[in-house]
Structures are given as C-alpha cells and as structure tokens.
Design a binder for these strands. Structure first.
Length: 483
DNA sequence: CTGGGGAAGGGGCCC
DNA sequence: CGGGCCCCTTCCCCA
C-alpha cells in the first residue's frame, strides 16, 4: 500500500526544518549571502553537490561550506526553493540565469523546465512580436516610435511569472531547438560579458550608449552569433532553422531584459551597473555593430572568460581532487583551460585562421595547415587518380582552381588525352573558383621551374589572426610563412 | 540509392 | 599555456 502524500509531506517537513535552520549541515555562500540546507537533500538534487559532498562526507562531523560567485543569491534562492518544494518560480527575468545556474549545478530537471518555459514564452509572444515588427517596419521616426512600442510591449506582456512543477516534465518532450536557442543565447551572453568587460576598460561614454540605445529594436533579423557549420552545428542543434528560432529566442530574451530594467531619459541602463551580467540581446547585437566591438580580438575575448566558468572537480585514482573545466554551453569537460578555450570555438563559431588561397576559415592553425597542404600545395605524394605513391620526379602537380594535387605521368597522359585543357596558367585561376569539376584545369608544364619552385618554397601560406577586418589591415598582421 | 574516399573538425595528450 | 601531433568521427562528393 502506497501513501501518495508521504513524499510531499516529507519534503514539506524538510523545508520547514530548513526554514528553522534545524539539522542544517551545509552552508552555501553566494556572493556574500549565506544559505543553510541539508547535505543529503543537496546531494540528491544536484550533480555538482553530489561531487562536492562526496568529498566532505568522509568527515561528516564538519559542516560543509560551498561558495559560489557565478550566479546571484536570488537565483540560488529560486533553485533552493525548488529543491525543497518542487516548485520553480520562473519568470521572464530569471529564466536565463536560473538555467545557467542549473547547468552549473548539474540539475537537469530545472534545465528541462527552463527550456520548456522559454519555448512556451516564444510561442506566446510570437503574434505580439509580429505585430510589433510590422509596426516597427512602418515607423519612420526611429527612436520615439521604438521607445513607445517597447513601452507598450512591456505593458502588453502581463504577468510573465509562472511556476513550474518538475514531476510533470519529461526531458524527451522538450524540443531540442529551444535548448539550442538558449545555448546560443548563452553564447551571446558570454560574449556580451566579455565585450562589456572590454568596453568598461575603454571607458564607455554616455553618448555612445545613447546612440546604441537609439537603435534598439532594429535588430530583428540579425544573427549575432554565427552558426557553426557541419558537425558541431548539428551537435549543438544550431542548423538553419534553429538560427531562425534563435533570433526569436534572442528577441524574447531582449524583451525580458527590457522588462527587467528601467531606463532613464537617456536610455542608459542603470540596472546594468548593479547587475552587469544582464545585457539584452539587442544591446549585444547593437554592440556587435560598433567599431569598439569589431576591435575585440578573439584573444581579448577569451582572456576575459571568467576563471570560475564551469570549473568542476572530479576524482582521480589517488582520491585526490582534480580540477576539470566544464563547458558552459554543453556537458563537455576538459582537463585544461586551454582545451576549454579551444573547445569554446565550436560554440562561438570563431575561426581565426583564414586560408589565404581560398578564404576558408578554420578554428585551428593545424587545420588550416592541413587544408593548405592537401588542397593548395599538393602535399600528398600520391597520384590522385591511381592512388599510387609518386615522388617529386614521378608525379606532376596539377592545379584545378585553387586545388592542387599530384598525378603520375601515366595518369597525367591519360587525363590529357581525355580532353582536359592544358596550359592554363594556374596562377590566373580565380582564387574562389572552388567550382565544378570541369572548370579550369592547369597542368604545371615545367614541374622543375614551376612546381619545383613551389616545393622549394614549401608554403606560400600566410596566417592571420582575427583577420576580420579589411585585407589591408589584415596584411599588417602577417605571420611568417609556415614551415 | 549506396558505398568509398577525401576533407573537415573535434578531443586527448605530449612537448 | 600554446603549438603540434595523432586519432577518430562526421560530412560531402562522386562513381
């Protein structure tokens, strides 16, 4: 016989004990504010606490103290209340931070509810937003019209506060797109925080802030965070449709941020001075269009990644604590901060290494090098047609557009007989042809003088870091040729 | 439609 | 900590 109310009453009793500080054996310090709780409850609720407390359980006589600086006391209060009540008081203002904290604390139930919350918020505001955008497009006087629209929008969104009860939620019900949107939005937030750091260093002026504010609301179609291509894009669920979805998420978050703060007559956000981590996505996108933001190099961005970002502990064979770095955007953990930095590129879409020959960009120098070697330098001593190994003497370098590869003399003769045009000057081929198989072929007629020279100057490859600017500017940062 | 090969990209780890 | 190497997986193109 099962008494269904038992669990509820038990949790209720624990919550009462917590409120009266009875049997609380764990103190959690969040930005100076102390929360008291029970170790066993925290252990059962959070993967983070499970790891943390599994260490301290060896000497259970000593009270456990955990310190957090990565989220606010208000956010932790929401989470702790949920742990002891099963009720999650989500609002449009706190959902992002709660989700971020839940990710940090490895509380998947809360994560799932946050996803659902955001998704439902998007649905609710879709029509309203369309209406807003259409009005916005018709508006001729930018600032006043937008300002009034934003105000009316704030009023229109009535009571965004909702409470979610976890047991009804199923992780597999949640549309992954919503998570990808949130994940990408979190990427935006991180980049925004970095940008904020950089800008604060440069002494942000009221005038520029006003100018930025003026453009708020004009960003409904821009995507700030580049979507990753290929594998990681799919891994993170950031495909083309997700990017559209993402823009909606950003607008929603923007709306939430607008809701969360008050603006003075200048439109400057005073709230940001109190809670500097809360930037609206519109502000982010606005910022991304400014020259200051354009000047932010990848190195600067990554140098300001908070040191506490996603750090978690694990245990090695000697039962000694071992730090691992957890990606804030996915479940991946790495041993070294540098590896995390490298990994983060697959979320931010940063590709600091462009190929001089074809313009394709890469996340790593070695990938660029491999690409250049195989595609543009015919680095493989293998006949592309018959797959036989060739040497400098037995294989000719053939250029097709920006691609170079080797053919043995036999295959070269056959290829020539099949009607491949010879004698096309490789150097005059368009750098971005990358096109059809039958585009422009070039055989290096004098291998010793042409291809040989290319071999003697192995890589006419120039590497640039963060070469997002004009070519002239990028050329000033040319690195020595590789190898 | 399918299988094979090349290219791209990400993770682990060493120097 | 950055660079580099190795290995593996995934994607794309082509026969």
């Amino acid at each position: 016989m099962e008494i269904s109310s038992h669990q509820f009453h038990l949790l209720e009793q624990l919550n009462e004990q917590r409120k009266q500080d009875l049997f609380c054996d764990c103190s959690i310090l969040v930005e100076g504010k102390v929360f008291r709780a029970h170790r066993n409850v925290l252990f059962a609720s959070s993967g983070y606490f499970k790891m943390l407390l599994s260490q301290s359980c060896k000497d259970s006589s000593q009270p456990t103290v955990a310190t957090f600086e990565v989220f606010s006391p208000e956010t932790f209060m929401v989470i702790l209340d949920f742990v002891y009540s099963g009720i999650l008081p989500l609002t449009g203002q706190n959902v992002i931070e709660v989700m971020s904290a839940a990710s940090y604390l490895q509380m998947t139930d809360i994560l799932n509810v946050c996803k659902t919350f955001i998704k439902s918020s998007l649905d609710i505001n879709e029509k309203e937003k369309d209406h807003y955008l259409s009005l916005s497009a018709k508006s001729t006087n930018g600032e006043p019209a937008h300002a009034s629209l934003y105000r009316s929008r704030r009023k229109a969104k009535s009571n965004p506060r909702r409470s979610y009860s976890i047991p009804d939620e199923k992780a597999d019900v949640v549309n992954e797109n919503s998570w990808s949107s949130c994940s990408t939005f979190l990427s935006s937030q991180v980049i925004l925080q970095r940008a904020e750091t950089q800008l604060s260093k440069r002494g942000r002026k009221q005038g520029s802030a006003r100018k930025r504010r003026k453009h708020l609301g004009l960003s409904q179609t821009r995507d700030f965070v580049p979507c990753k291509a290929n594998k990681a894009e799919r891994a993170e669920g950031c495909n083309a449709s997700d990017c559209n979805h993402n823009s909606r998420a950003k607008e929603e978050a923007e709306f939430d941020a607008e809701n969360a703060v008050d603006h003075d007559d200048d439109g400057y956000n005073h709230e940001s001075e109190v809670t500097p981590k809360r930037w609206s996505v519109a502000q982010l996108e606005e910022l991304s269009q400014t020259s200051e933001f354009m000047e932010l190099k990848a190195e600067e961005l990554y140098s300001s990644v908070p040191t506490v970002l996603g750090v978690m502990s694990s245990w090695n064979e000697d039962d000694l604590p071992r730090l691992r770095f957890k990606c804030p955007f996915c479940t991946h953990t790495v041993k070294r901060r540098a590896d995390l930095k490298r990994h983060l590129r697959c979320h931010t879409g940063e590709r600091p290494y462009p190929c001089e020959a074809c313009g394709k960009r890469f996340t790593r120098l070695e990938h660029l090098r491999n690409h250049f070697q195989t595609i543009h330098q015919a680095g493989k001593l293998i006949c592309r047609k018959c797959k036989r190994q060739v040497s400098e003497q037995t294989g000719c370098v053939v250029q097709q557009g920006t691609r170079r590869y080797r053919l043995c003399h036999n295959c070269l003769t056959e290829t020539s007989l099949e009607g491949v045009p010879e004698g096309v000057d490789a150097e005059h081929c368009p750098a971005s042809s990358g096109g059809s198989k039958h585009s422009r072929w070039a055989l290096e007629e004098d291998q010793k003088s042409d291809g040989g020279a290319a071999e003697e100057e192995p890589y006419n490859l120039v590497v640039r870091r963060g070469a997002d600017g004009p070519a002239d500017e990028a050329d000033e940062k040319v690195k020595p040729n590789l190898r």
